[in-house]
Amino acid sequence: MFIKTSNPAFKDFGDIVYDDMDFSSSHKINLNNKFIDNLKLVTNDYTFIKVTKGVVMILVSFDSNNIKSFIINRSLHIKKGIYFNFISISDEASVEVLTNTEFKSITLDNPFNYSNISSSLDISEIYTKFYQEKGTNYNFSGEKHSYWELTYVDKGELLTTIDRVSYHLKQGDLIFYAPMQFHTQSTFEKISSSYLTINFKMNFNHADLLCNKIFSLQRDSYFIVTRLIEELSNDNLYSDDLSLCYLKELIIQMLRLDNSHFHSKPTTHMQQTYENELLNDILLYIDDNIYEKISVSTLCDHFCISTSMLHSLFRKNMNNTAKNYINELKLSKSKELIRNSTHTLSEISEMLGFSSIHYFSKKFKSYFNISPTEYSKSIYN
């Protein structure tokens, strides 16, 4: 996550300049670099920087080894003894440097290379979309084609072969066929199958990460498939765009999935619906009572469920614990209250049920990496 120079963490390296300064005698530097192998040392107390074009990252360090990075969002004064240099985040950028001295340069042992945030896979078009329901003893003799194909088994079981290798898919399983992979599909003698098939155009340079393996969906991926099927089935505004987004999200989830850590998936639609409704009621209750002292036992008593069931609901659907979720929600609420500037920090601490202002400040800084006081000052500035 990027940090701006207006963040209090930058204060060790320099200060924000809020007054208009005369940069008419400054030196202009045009940037398009994503790589630097040196840092410049500030040798006096008169070095000011202003971005005049594009998005610029400044790299700063005390010793040229432990380098910190910030996005420049204000004119800056860089302190004496600080090493610095620039990276252009946008394609082109420029800065003006106002100083009365020459900088000393030092070569980095480990050059800094910035990688743009960009997509590693691109899905440009969905060719076909079928939800197929096949009875027992169905047999498709096979085909190969120049585009990607996805098959997700919604119910029952399906047998598929890819280049003569067999794969047995069960409910909740998903498989990909890469371009020009010959594949067949069939059902079993006593087991039917309902499954989603999508043919699509995708640019992706790591096909081996998706091919020749079965993916068993976790619950978050199951929700993505549900939304994908819904959008593929209607003609609402931007449904096509959402379908492409959900398909890409699903593929990314599969790429990140470690099957060895897979624990659970929905067994039936009824079970999933029940758990979703219960969890939704619990989340609404927490939100409505955020100013009260809420504990795990409070939730269990109110909803007549066991501690283990509550833990399972949050672990499988929120990837979190109920206790952590409550604390995180309270801390997020405290940020909102600080931004509103209608209560003191002591009042906010008491309103949200923290035992003391010191405990509140400790939890706040631990979670947001900034104290409530510093955060309040940064909002004011």
Rank of each mutant, 00 (worst) to 15 (best):
T160K: 08
V42Y: 01
L196M: 14
K323C: 11
S341W: 08
N320I: 05
G14A: 02
I175N: 05
L299A: 10
I72E: 01
Y127Q: 11
V97G: 01
S26W: 00
I126A: 03
K50L: 00
N116L: 15
L209D: 11
I58T: 02
Y167A: 08
M254A: 04
N234E: 09
F84R: 01
F200Q: 00
G81N: 02
H311D: 13
M351F: 13
E125M: 13
S94Y: 00
Y18C: 06
P372G: 07
T342G: 06
Y177S: 11
L108V: 02
N100T: 00
S25R: 01
N236Y: 15
F262H: 15
T184L: 05
T184H: 07
T136A: 09
F140A: 07
G81W: 02
S264E: 11
D109N: 15
K53P: 00
S260M: 08
S239N: 10
I224W: 03
L169I: 06
S378A: 15
I294V: 10
M21N: 04
V60I: 06
N289S: 06
N66F: 09
L121Y: 11
F48V: 00
T197R: 14
L244G: 06
Y325Q: 06
P372K: 08
I16Q: 05
I126Y: 01
D287H: 14
E277N: 15
I117L: 12
I106F: 12
G135M: 02
A9V: 10
L209H: 09
K293M: 10
D22I: 00
D235Y: 14
L150K: 01
S334D: 03
K170N: 10
K316C: 11
R256A: 13
I326P: 07
L313A: 06
K129T: 14
S356G: 03
Y291I: 09
K362P: 07
K335Q: 13
N381M: 13
E277P: 06
S119M: 09
L299P: 06
K201G: 08
E102C: 08
N317W: 12
V153G: 01
L313Q: 03
L310P: 00
I305A: 04
I126S: 03
I282W: 02
L278S: 05
I214F: 02
R74H: 15
C304Q: 11
F13S: 05
A207T: 13
S349F: 02
L310R: 02
M202W: 06
S239F: 04
I67N: 03
F112P: 01
D287F: 12
E350S: 14
